[in-house]
Write a protein that binds this DNA or RNA. Structure first.
Lengths: 102, 102
DNA sequence: TATATATTTAGATAATTATTTAAATATCGA
DNA sequence: TCGATATTTAAATAATTATCTAAATATATA
């Protein structure tokens, strides 16, 4: 969850996500949309993959990336819980100084 | 928008948001929930404020913080656009190498 | 098999962000 | 007005992240 939020915190990575929403694309095809070097894009793709936001699969020479909307929906869920209709003063948040977010 | 995502990328700041969802709280009250120093919490509160996610208002000695759900809903909107039902291959994303995210 | 293409990994550096202690500012209440 | 409380700002440092070039790996194809 923390990884997802961190991955979404970068504008390049958010643009990559939008590109992948349209269709699956190879690493090089993605890189062509940016002025950044290919290794940098590779690094961003890795961050997205590590967060579970995208998946990759080799097809011959190419490595195709695709979006994993499941994780995006988890993030969405977290936000909905906050803005969420109704439950305005309902579910108490309980954590102590040691507590970590799941 | 970028500021919002960056603000949400930190677990301490997300916990602060959850605390403020319950009710408005003073800076000190918020700081008591964490083992971090007060200046650090002040810094995080500033990041949230800068992103427009929270507002502050002085009440005598205390400075009360409250949640601004409007900005959270904008973030929510961004995510909904991606996971969004229906419009699967509809709105083309068009940006060039110079383009900045609004 | 040698060469070209696609992509990642390594290593270095620059930039950003988080954190702390100490000091400054503001308000309250005796 | 003075001392206590609440909070922020400043300055320094540590930790993390982003970026680049060069090198390594994997696959395709002539």
């Amino acid at each position: 969850m923390n990884e997802s939020f961190k991955a979404l915190a970068d504008p390049t990575r958010r643009q990559i996500i939008r590109l992948l929403r349209e269709k699956d694309r190879s690493a090089g095809e993605i890189a062509d949309y940016f002025k950044m070097s290919k290794p940098s894009i590779s690094h961003h793709l890795n961050a997205l993959k590590h967060a579970g936001l995208v998946q990759d699969e080799r097809h011959g020479q190419f490595i195709m990336y695709s979006l994993n909307t499941t994780v995006l929906e988890e993030v969405l869920g977290w936000l909905l819980e906050l803005t969420g209709t109704g439950k305005q003063n309902e579910p108490e948040v309980h954590f102590n100084k040691e507590a970590e977010e799941k």
